[in-house]
Amino acid sequence: MKLTTSQTVALIVMVQFGVGILSLPSVLAAEAGSLGWVPLLAAGLFVQVAAFLYHFSLGKSTEKNLFLYMESLMGSFLSKCLTAVLLLYFLAGSAIIMRNYVFVLTIWSYHETPVFIIILLVWVCVVFLATCKIHSISRVAQIVFAGVLFLLLLLLWQIPHFEYSYLRFPNTVSPSSIFSGTVETSLSLIGFELILLFHFLLKDRRQTLKIVTISNWLTIGIYLFVVLIVFMQFSPEKLGKLIWPTLSVYKLIEFRFLQRLEYIIVFSWLPLIVITSGTYLWGAGKCARYLFSIKNRWVILILSLIIFAAALMVQRHPDSVLIGDYIGYVGVGAAFFVPLLFLCFKPFK
C-alpha cells in the first residue's frame, strides 16, 4: 500500500507541529516583537527552497527506498555513513520531542508524579505507533489533523479580548533579529526532511514538490494564525515571560461549565506528540534496519529502549530546550545538506 498526496501532507504537517506551536509565539516575540510574522513567512520561503532541492534530487529516482538510492549515488560506504547520521538525528529527535512534551505535562499538571511514569506512558504510545506501517501512521495523522484544527479554532473564542494595538510596528527591530527569528522558526518547521523516506513510498513520486509545498504553507498558515492570535492577546513584555503562550491563551478561555481549558489542551496534544516522536522513531527503525540488517521488530525494540533512556537522562527543562535547539540545527542542516549532496553526486550516477 502506497502513500497518497493527502496522507503525506497530513503526516508532514503533524510532524512539523510537535511542541513547537505551543512555544513559537514567545520565541518570535523575543526576536522580532510584533513583527514576528515576518520571520515566519521568511522561514516558509526558506523551506520552499528545500522543497525544490528535494524535487530535483529525488524526482526521477526509481529505487525501492532511500538507502538503495543513496547506494546507487554515492556507493555503499558513504551511504551507510549518511544513514548513521540520519539514524542518530531521528533517534535524538524522537527522544527530545517526547521529553519536551513530558516537561509540559509535569509543569502544567503532574508536579508530584514521578517523571518516570509520565515518560513511560507517553513512550508506550510512541512505540505502538512506530511499530505500525507508514500508511497506518498516516491514517492516524489525518484524523488527528482534523482534531488539531478544531482545537486551534477554539482560540477564536478570545476575539472579543483581542488587543489590536499589540500588532503595531515595533520601535526596535533590526534585520539581524528578523534573521535570527527566521532561523528559530525553521526549527519549528523541521519534519519536512522526512520526505526523504516518504518519497519512495508515494503512489506518485512526481508529487514530492507539491507535497512539501502544500505541507509547508499549510503549516506556515496555521502557525501564522496561532502567532497572530497570541500576539493580539499578550503584550510583547508579557510574551517574553511566557514559555508556552499558546497554552496561556487557552487558559484565558472560560465557559460557565468549564475553565482552565489548557488542562484539556495539554492532554489533547498527546496524539500530536506521539505522531511526531513516533514517526521519527519509525524513520530511525528504517535506517537501523538498513545498517544492521536485523528484523524490524528487534530494531524498534532496541531503539525504543534507547529513546526511553535518553528521555530519562534529561532532567531540567532548559537543558531539554537547549538540546532540542541543537537537534533542530542539525535537522535544518541535514534537510538542506542531504538533497544538495544528492545533487552533487547525481551527474556521476
Binding site: 493527502s6 507517553v122 505502538f128 505500525c132 491514517r139 489525518q142 484524523i143 488527528v144 498527546l270
Partner: peptide
C-alpha cells in the same frame, strides 16, 4: 484517558478488514 484514546486510535488505524482500512473513509481520507 489521553493515552487510552491514543492507543485506541492507533489500534483502529492498524486494523483492516480484508485489506480495507477499518477507519476508512476518515483515515485514509
Amino acid at each position: 484517558l489521553a493515552v487510552g484514546a491514543v492507543l485506541l486510535l492507533i489500534y483502529l488505524a492498524r486494523l483492516e478488514s480484508f485489506g480495507v482500512p477499518y477507519l476508512s473513509p476518515f483515515g485514509p481520507l
